[in-house]
Nucleic acid binder design. Structure first.
Ligand SMILES: [Zn+2]
Ligand SMILES: [Zn+2]
Ligand SMILES: [Zn+2]
Ligand SMILES: [Zn+2]
Lengths: 132, 132
DNA sequence: TAACGTTATGTAATAATATAACATTTATAA
DNA sequence: TTATAAATGTTATATTATTACATAACGTTA
């Protein structure tokens, strides 16, 4: 069961933009695209992004400083994320693999750390880029 | 067998600083610390960092925009990295777990992606911070 | 050594990413 | 309603990273 979050005005504008784009978007590119809707300052964008990340509607691709809509309907919070990133065309997709997520969610070692979140980024070449 | 890289002057200064610090360091903190050694501009730092990452002497902690000396003598290149990060004290350590690295290095799915690199960051509370 | 290509350095300017501080408004719920 | 939390608006600024161009040092081979 996914909690329904009523997005605020700015949050909705920004989520819709990212979601429709189908890929990762950078904060200032988002800003540029929503200026016609009245969102004029970086902070307005970053605040909405923070909230959307917090509730799991989007995730941050750390290695790219970019944000992508969650492609996995069950992500309630951004606490167990895995992505595949093509280093040639920069296509990004969220990996949804229950064996992988189980393995990582259950991971523990003898360091004494109590893990409660992870983010994994795989890099390589996508199908298209491989064949070039 | 690890290839011996002869570090250049700036690379050596910057690697030694990071290595001695024992933890992650940020680029501008590095810059501040090496100014007395004649490294005066951000670009000099970033160029050395790029090279050190490339040859696996340091790794970038993407979620923190920080750089840490490789704690795993066998990392020749930064292509299979895993870290544990305490969200309270920001202590970072490199995870060296052969089962984990085998599992991730062999990971593949039906997306058609050919993976050749990954970076994994675990977040949680370290021993000390848990007991506070 | 001399010539060549590669790697590293120096320097200035600027781009890209992100947050601080403060005032105000809107939504939520007791 | 009234209190509280959440979201917004705005300006300024901090932090992280790259472009562009010139010069120097290094490694290889003729
Ligand atoms: Zn997701
Ligand atoms: Zn591709
Ligand atoms: Zn390493
Ligand atoms: Zn800690």
């Amino acid at each position: 069961m996914q909690k329904e979050h009523n997005l605020s005005k700015n949050q909705k504008i920004i989520f819709d933009l990212i979601d429709k784009s189908g890929g990762p978007m950078k904060a200032y590119s988002i800003l540029f695209n929503v200026q016609k809707k009245g969102i004029k300052a970086p902070l307005q964008v970053y605040r909405a992004l923070d909230k959307l990340v917090e509730i799991g509607k989007i995730h941050k691709i750390e290695s790219r400083n970019a944000f992508i809509a969650c492609q996995n309907s069950s992500c309630q919070v951004s606490k167990a994320t895995a992505f595949s990133i093509c280093e040639s065309c920069e296509n990004v997709s969220e990996i949804s693999n229950s064996k992988l997520s189980k393995y990582l969610s259950n991971f523990s070692d003898n360091s004494g750390m109590k893990y409660n979140k992870y983010n994994l980024e795989f890099f390589g070449l996508c199908k298209k880029c491989k064949s070039k």
